[in-house]
């Protein structure tokens, strides 16, 4: 009898989300085998042993109150948040205001324009294992619309040596069927009508550094 009462109270307090829209893009090599010892090696003199330990887990990132931003990416939209008290706006989003005088005021969602400006940039010739084949990558920190913060993402449609501080950008989304609800669903491109400045010493230097990267990437399997 008591148990029934508790369950009823729980139902009223917490509404469990019903995940009706599901999509899986798990690569075939994720096996979720958990923890296992899968081999070892011993040195010729018999003094040293190494053991190979495999750890393969699937994590769930529960976006919770940030969900609207990531769901927005699937729809080709950039959502930001704004503090109703002080008006500061952010993308990446904050669900509570950063201004201590606003006492963690809950923020409201605002749709951001699909344009921005380069705050700073770099040309990567090396990266994590999962990104090596995409090198060289131009990474920019860009300010979208009136955001108070810069967001990191790739800049496409431009030679690595032609990037400039403060250059105007547009946000370009992948085709809808390729989106996964992550920030990689979009990238930046130079705003329409943007033209690179003439070649100069720094551009020559970046070219010199990047050319071996193009060659090296071609050798990757």
């Amino acid at each position: 009898m008591n148990e029934t009462v508790v369950l009823k109270r729980k139902d009223r307090i917490v509404k469990k989300p019903d995940f009706t829209e599901k999509k899986s893009y798990r690569p075939v090599n994720v096996k979720e085998t958990g923890l296992s010892f899968i081999g070892h090696e011993i040195s010729e003199d018999g003094n040293v042993m190494n053991q190979f330990f495999h750890y393969d887990q699937l994590y769930t990132i529960r976006h919770g109150w940030n969900s609207k931003f990531f769901k927005g990416l699937l729809e080709g939209k950039i959502w930001g948040t704004r503090c109703p008290k002080c008006g500061d706006t952010w993308v990446p989003v904050r669900t509570h205001c950063w201004n201590l005088d606003c006492n963690l005021e809950k923020t409201e969602w605002v749709e951001m324009p699909l344009n921005g400006k380069v705050h700073t940039w770099t040309v990567a010739g090396w990266s994590g294992r999962s990104s090596l084949k995409r090198l060289p990558i131009i990474l920019v920190y860009a300010v979208i619309g009136k955001s108070k913060v810069a967001i990191a993402n790739e800049l496409h449609g431009i030679k690595p040596w032609d990037v400039e501080f403060e250059m105007s950008l547009k946000v370009v989304f992948k085709p809808e069927e390729d989106r996964i609800g992550a920030v990689t669903d979009f990238h930046f491109e130079p705003a329409d009508g943007w033209e690179p400045s003439p070649i100069h010493q720094e551009k020559e230097r970046i070219k010199e550094l990047v050319e071996p990267v193009y060659k090296w990437v071609k050798t990757l399997k």
């Binding site: 940030n66 999962s130 990104s131």
Partner: peptide, 8 residues
Amino acid sequence: RYELIVGG
């Protein structure tokens, strides 16, 4: 969510 996935 925002950086690792693009910068690496």
